[in-house]
Design a protein around this nucleic acid. Structure first.
Length: 298
DNA sequence: AATTATGTTGCGGT
DNA sequence: AACCGCAACATAAT
């Protein structure tokens, strides 16, 4: 899925396009993916767009719309009378690339943004355009809740955001000390820190020069300190690149994120480490790919 | 054909 | 009781 930098990039895009606009209608084609009564969204104004962990929170004139994109969810906005935009992982036949956008190309591909397509499950029509929720694997969802206390329940499980004062070195240290799992698994735990997924766990551990297989409770103080600084550093770098378009992630306007251009380890198996030249290794840690430099992170 | 994919959750075991 | 590992969810690309 989109991790924190991707969801935050989407949040900024949605805020720019949707805040102040009115929802005219909602078309739910896959009922399982909308929890609550979609009809209640009709006529509501989008007041504010927020994010908690990897969850998007739309503040509406009456209630909240929550969206979780999980692994392959997309939210793509096409303004009224706007251009037909198709974005593909690789440019398609008969398409032209312009500033990260791919225009034209094959209309039937799963990743195409000639919308709606077979993986478009929910359409939200607003007064200034249409938002398409596409999700190849159908793990993602939208949920309407009415009251602030309902919203509170939804976000109660998440650990601190990396920007919060609650995310202190002391908190980080004591959290790691009580976990007997690998440091990689600890970073992925949303109840410990909000927003890290597979990409940024690997990238943060490279930044801190820590082997992902190390036990969380066996890290030295100086390693913990380094990792504590690396998490914000990596997040902020990715945000400045609009996130990572590894496969399905797209910005709200269909553009890809370009963090992969500067990633040190993620998806770089066999390629030379940017620091020492040693080939990057990929191993499994509890079922998930983990990329690291065997020389720098030993 | 088997493996892989940006995530979370619920179940059973320790 | 808290913690941990793993299957499950659904679909396509390689």
């Amino acid at each position: 899925m989109p991790e924190l930098p991707e969801v935050e990039t989407i949040r900024r895009g949605l805020a720019e396009k949707l805040v102040g606009h009115k929802i005219l209608s909602v078309d739910v084609r896959a009922p399982k993916l909308f929890i609550g009564d979609a009809k209640l969204l009709r006529g509501q104004i989008v007041i504010e767009m927020e994010r908690r962990a990897k969850l998007l929170i739309w503040k509406l004139s009456d209630g909240f719309l929550l969206t979780h994109l999980k692994m392959t969810g997309q939210l793509i906005f096409q303004p009224k009378n706007g251009p037909m935009v198709i974005s593909e992982r690789t440019p398609l036949e008969n398409s032209t690339v312009n500033d990260g956008l791919v225009i034209g190309g094959h209309p039937d591909k799963a990743y195409g943004l000639d919308l709606p397509h077979k993986h478009t499950h929910i359409l939200i029509e607003l007064d200034n355009g249409t938002l398409f929720f596409n999700d190849l694997r159908k793990f993602g969802w939208l949920k309407y809740v009415h009251s602030p206390s309902d919203l509170k329940v939804e976000v109660a499980k998440y650990g601190p955001e990396y920007t919060w004062p609650e995310f202190s070195l002391e908190y980080f240290k004591s959290g790691l000390a009580k976990r007997r799992i690998t440091v990689k698994q600890a970073l992925l735990d949303q109840t410990f820190i909000a927003g890290i997924g597979n990409i940024y766990a690997d990238e943060s551990l490279f930044c801190a020069k820590i082997d992902p297989r190390r036990k969380a409770n066996e890290l030295t103080n100086s390693e913990i300190k380094k990792l504590f600084a690396c998490v914000p550093e990596v997040f902020n770098l990715s945000l400045s690149h609009g996130g990572t378009s590894s496969q399905h992630y797209r910005q709200v306007d269909g553009k890809m994120g370009t963090y992969l251009d500067v990633a040190n380890v993620y998806k770089r198996e066999g390629q030379p480490c940017r620091v020492c030249g040693t080939p990057i290794k990929r191993i499994k840690i509890t079922g998930r790919s983990s990329h690291f430099c065997p020389h720098c992170q030993s």
